[in-house]
Write a protein that binds this DNA or RNA. Structure first.
Length: 110
DNA sequence: GTATTGACCGTAG
DNA sequence: TCTACGGCCAATA
């Protein structure tokens, strides 16, 4: 597997603050491959065992497209709601407000 | 080495 | 506003 790519994705996901969310595209863009959002999603699916806050990562519309990847079909939504994120019909209500841009954390500079 | 799949995204009609 | 298509990247068969 492309270790560098995977590592970068995992590191960024780990930086997502409590109660905030981001998108696959934003992560991919921050890494340097704006078109690799699919790979990001794939990697997250394979990193459920890594103890990452993967539930804070959704698609560009704020929809919980990856909820079915979790053990229970409602695990993702439950965790988000537990963090104060309002979820309605599988999508984040205040997505635009809760959205966390990785660029805000300038720890990562490419 | 080729084909297919997947937690996606942007553009065009 | 909604749908369709193509493209991109990593992993698997």
């Amino acid at each position: 597997m492309n270790r560098d790519f995977a590592q970068a994705v995992y590191d960024i996901v780990k930086l997502i603050p409590y109660g905030r969310v981001t998108s696959y595209g934003a992560i991919a863009k921050h890494i340097g491959s704006p078109q690799s959002s699919r790979a990001v999603g794939w990697l997250l699916n394979n990193s459920l065992e890594y103890n990452l806050p993967a539930h804070r990562v959704v698609n560009r519309n704020g929809v919980l497209t990856g909820k079915k990847a979790f053990s229970e079909n409602s695990t993702m939504q439950s965790r988000l709601e537990k963090e104060g994120v309002e979820v309605k019909d599988d999508k984040i209500v205040n997505f635009k407000t809760l959205f966390w841009n990785p660029s805000d954390e300038l720890h990562y500079t490419f």
